[in-house]
Nucleic acid binder design. Structure first.
Length: 882
RNA sequence: GGGAUUAUAGCUCAGUUGGCUAGAGUACCACGUUGACAUCGUGGGGGUCACUGGUUCGAGCCCAGUUAAUCCCACCA
């Protein structure tokens, strides 16, 4: 007995996934085959964080990329998918700190060195875990080229870029208002801050004049910051306050004299029209302060508590308590004028969700303007294309309004900034290697800057740092620029934009030509998956339950580029069922091949065979086109429809005639066609469902040692285009469907011949004779035999019969004559209406003049067609009347 | 405040540059142990294409407006 008969009745992914993947990886098939002179297809994988578990976002990301990679590999392109992981500075550090907290130790206990040791241990443990999980999805990446954002090579690139940009003056150090997370104790970039609406109060506080005048009233949501006020601003046009401009007020509680300044920034219609200025703790106030030379007084510590500058009453007090005390004291002095309920947006740390405090701080910045310009140009000139296009707008919107990027973080885990400060003279030295002495004063008392770089600083270099830059490597030369970058739209700002300007800046070339944006995965209710909602789905569990192929397919099928997708059990089941359908269709084909491979005899092709081969050609062309256009969802849809609705539902069924009852010649021909179509189907499906297809492929005759993954992508063979046969089959299928409707309607028992009410005209007879076996098998009816239905016949049945043939057969004595006349008359009326409608169209000069000729002709044919039926109906009515 | 997207069957979504009766999947109903598959097969019901107007011979598609929802950016004390 041959191997084929041992296939189970259902596909068990669990049994094959592990071993199949291992065999692929062992064989080295994931490594690109470099062909000098041939353009490679390259994807550099967005590196997952080493913080944890594979989630649905990764699953989509990896699936999309793996499909493209497998497609191009089969096309014969030298194909590289370079994987790696990201150190994820702040996220990882938080996780480690959290883990340590449970053990009762703090970062400070370990010290920088000790902490980093621990962090590397973490990386060893979890960095490997995530890559194992990627394997479970079937990711066919070249693990021999795997990189990590903090490995020696990538770190070298980071230092090189930093030093170069510093030397060019693009990187500078300065005092600016930054978003400060008092829990993570680090600066955050603008995009690391999330805003949410919160209920709070708007406090109206009176600031009297220093001479005892009543002064003015300011409104604030953060009263404790008044301790750091160094001025009050009003709108220059605001007549209420013109008399106060330039005057001095006495800041309550601290009794500091502060000036009233006029600045357009102030909106006279909001609050009281007077704004207290706290330049050290508010970005706008900071700007105003610079314009008016107001003092910048920081009153808060890094942990959010008040410092000495806040005055002896408040020093050391947490911000919350300080707020309370300030309010109490103001109230006691009768200076708290009004308290309003107020809803506004409060920023919080995207990592730990603590409320962010804007405060002044010395940080490293990257000057964005000169970098953004060419990056905008590159997209505008379509050197980089976004799929779908609309995301380019998002990109422009951000890049055109970009502000300098705060790249320093007060963390330990990350790339330490290559800058040294001289303890003697204060000079800062930025260098590739640690300097021994200060070039200015010769002192050897140098200490490295404590900060590390924003994690996205290294990510921005990923497309070339992973290929060996700054060294001149062969990989860099061959694979850069890469082809496609696939990622979610949530990461355009964090990453995509920064890679584009970095690539242009340091490589002088775009990093990739296509940015393929996919949506995010939502639950069945359309909600974002989040930890707090607890609605997250673990992709690994889905793989266990349904198989990796089903997961991949359900994430792709019918999903338009950039569109969010919902994942549900129903969707997973549909994908699993499809996999099983393919499995069983293959099982049937393999059973009938008897382990022998055959080739099609073109001279013996019958209509069914011509039809399926022609349909296969269409599927190949369509899928290839969609994949080239990055529309994976449509491509999968074409596969699904072809495999299930055409190959399984029709051709396999049709083939059974020859397979079971045909002459030896026909039998072999059917087998050859089945084998050909199955082979192509498996290969077309392979990028989407690699495990299933590889498993079946190896069971094909003579393919034990072959690999679906490394087989060529199917090409449409022009000699198998049969437009006429396709049309003919379409007609036959319509008729078979109609007969089935009749059978159902008449409740004809299986096994019994349906009594089909047909009188084929000469044209149809020809076709029907051709299709006779199909009718026998699929419709349980003989197309040429006129039989008498004994059952009651409904309208529906009649209309179904109407679609079968031109000649509607008289129902004779089966039905009440009056009723039948009425029905036929009604039908005739319907046809007349149709004809009138068509004639109306043809009488419309605009239609005749402007519509395509084929359409006009079709309309004329329709009239003729309807008139023919009408005539026979009328004739029949006449007969019945007699 | 600025920008983007979406609105089609109970649900999830397709619907190419406008062109025959608007399609799938799923759910629902009926029937079915036909030699791959009940994770299946066959058939069926179910739509005012959000609303209003416009362009056109012709609009689910193009244009304007209205309504509703989602998302992103900015962050007014």
């Amino acid at each position: 007995m041959s191997q084929q008969f041992e296939m189970d009745k259902t596909f068990s992914p669990q049994q094959v996934e592990g071993t199949t993947y291992e065999a692929w990886e062992q064989s080295g098939a994931f490594k690109p085959v470099i062909k000098v002179g041939k353009k490679p297809y390259t994807i550099v994988m967005p590196p997952p964080n080493i913080t944890g578990q594979l989630h649905m976002g990764h699953a989509v990301d990896v699936t999309v990329q793996d499909i493209l990679i497998r497609f191009h590999r089969m096309l014969g392109d030298p194909t590289l998918w370079l994987p790696g992981t990201d150190h994820a500075s702040i996220a990882t550090e938080n996780k480690i700190v959290e883990q340590m907290r449970k053990e009762g130790i703090t970062k400070e206990d370990l010290g920088r060195e000790g902490f980093l040791e621990r962090a590397w241990e973490w990386k060893k443990l979890y960095g490997g875990r995530i890559t194992q999980q990627l394997r479970r999805l079937g990711a066919s990446c070249d693990w021999s080229r795997e990189r990590f954002t903090m490995d020696a090579g990538c770190s070298k690139a980071v230092t090189e870029v930093f030093v170069r940009m510093y030397e060019e003056g693009l990187i500078y150090r300065g005092e600016r208002i930054i978003n400060w997370c008092p829990v993570c104790k680090t600066a955050l970039s603008d995009i690391e801050v999330d805003y949410e609406e919160k209920q709070s109060k708007l406090y109206h506080i009176r600031y009297p004049e220093d001479d005892g005048g009543e002064g003015l009233v300011v409104a604030t949501t953060r009263p404790e910051t008044m301790l750091g006020d160094t001025g009050v601003a009003v709108n220059p046009q605001d007549e209420r306050y013109t008399h106060l401009i330039g005057k001095e007020l006495l800041l309550p509680l601290v009794n500091r004299r502060i000036h009233v300044v006029a600045d357009d920034y102030v909106d006279a219609s909001f609050g009281t029209g007077a704004v207290k200025m706290t330049p050290a703790h508010d970005p706008n106030d900071f700007e105003v302060a610079k314009r008016h030379n107001l003092e910048i007084l920081r009153v808060m510590n890094d942990d959010g508590s008040m410092n000495e500058a806040a005055g002896p009453d408040f020093a050391g007090m947490p911000g919350k308590d300080a707020r309370k005390k300030v309010l109490e004291m103001l109230e006691a002095q009768g200076l708290l004028v009004k308290v309003q309920d107020y809803t506004h947006n409060v920023g919080s740390c995207s990592r730990c969700h603590a409320t962010v405090e804007p405060l002044i701080s010395k940080q490293w910045f990257l000057n964005m303007e000169p970098l953004a310009k060419p990056a905008i140009e590159a997209v505008r000139e379509c050197k980089v294309t976004f799929v779908p296009e609309r995301f380019a707008k998002t990109y422009f919107n951000w890049m055109e309004n970009i502000r300098d990027w705060c790249i320093s973080r007060q963390l330990w885990w990350g790339h330490r900034i290559p800058a040294w400060h001289c303890q003697t003279c204060g000079t800062t030295i930025v260098a590739r290697e640690a300097p021994d002495t200060c070039p200015d004063c010769g002192s050897s008392r140098l200490s490295q800057d404590e900060d590390v770089l924003d994690t996205w600083f290294s990510s921005a270099l990923w497309p070339f740092s992973t290929l060996g830059w700054p060294d001149d490597t062969k990989d860099l030369e061959y694979f850069y620029p890469t082809s496609t970058l696939a990622t979610g739209y949530d990461i355009i700002f964090f990453w995509v934009a920064r890679m584009i300007f970095s690539g242009l800046k340091h490589m002088g070339e775009i990093p990739f030509d296509t940015v393929l944006i996919h949506g995010i995965v939502r639950d069945e209710l359309g909600r974002k998956m989040s930890k707090s909602l607890g609605n997250g789905v673990d992709p690994l569990e889905l793989i266990d339950t349904y198989g990796a192929d089903a997961l991949r397919f359900s994430l792709i099928l019918g999903v338009a580029p950039g569109a969010d997708m919902r994942i549900s059990n129903e969707r997973m089941e549909a994908a699993r069922n499809f996999a099983n359908k393919i499995w069983n269709a293959s099982r049937f084909v393999l059973m009938n091949l008897d382990g022998t491979s055959r080739t099609i005899d073109d001279s013996l092709l019958n209509t069914n065979e011509k039809w399926i081969l022609s349909r296969l050609n269409r599927a190949i062309r369509s899928m290839t086109g969609h994949l080239e256009g990055n529309d994976l969802g449509l491509s999968a849809q074409v596969m699904y429809d072809f495999a299930w609705n055409e190959f399984c539902d029709w051709y396999i069924e049709l083939s059974k005639g020859d397979l079971f009852d045909g002459t030896p010649e026909r039998k072999d021909q059917a087998r050859a066609v089945l084998e050909t179509v199955l082979s192509a189907t498996l290969r077309l499906l392979h990028p989407f469902m690699p495990f299933l297809t590889e498993t079946i492929f190896k069971a094909m005759p003579g393919k034990q040692e072959a690999s679906c993954m490394l087989s060529p992508w199917p090409e449409a063979d022009g000699k198998y285009d049969f437009a006429q046969e396709e049309q003919q089959m379409e007609g036959v299928m319509d008729m078979i469907r109609a007969i089935r409707t009749v059978r159902n309607e008449l409740k004809v028992q299986p096994g019994h011949r349906a009594r089909v009410l047909l009188k084929p005209n000469p044209g149809w007879a020809e076709r029907l004779r051709d299709a006779e076996p199909a009718f026998q098998r699929l419709a349980g009816a003989s197309a040429l035999t006129l039989l008498k239905a004994e059952e009651h016949i409904t309208e529906k049945t009649v209309s179904a019969i109407g679609t079968i043939g031109e000649a509607l057969i008289p129902l004779g004595d089966l039905v009440d004559i009056e009723k039948e006349i009425a029905r036929l008359s009604k039908e005739a009326q319907g046809l007349r209406d149709e004809i009138i409608k068509s004639q109306g169209k043809l009488n419309n000069p605009g239609f005749v003049a402007k519509a395509p000729p084929a359409l006009v002709q079709a309309e004329q044919e329709k009239i003729a067609h309807n008139e023919g039926i009408l005539a026979s109906l009328e004739k029949r009515v006449e007969e019945l009347r007699q």
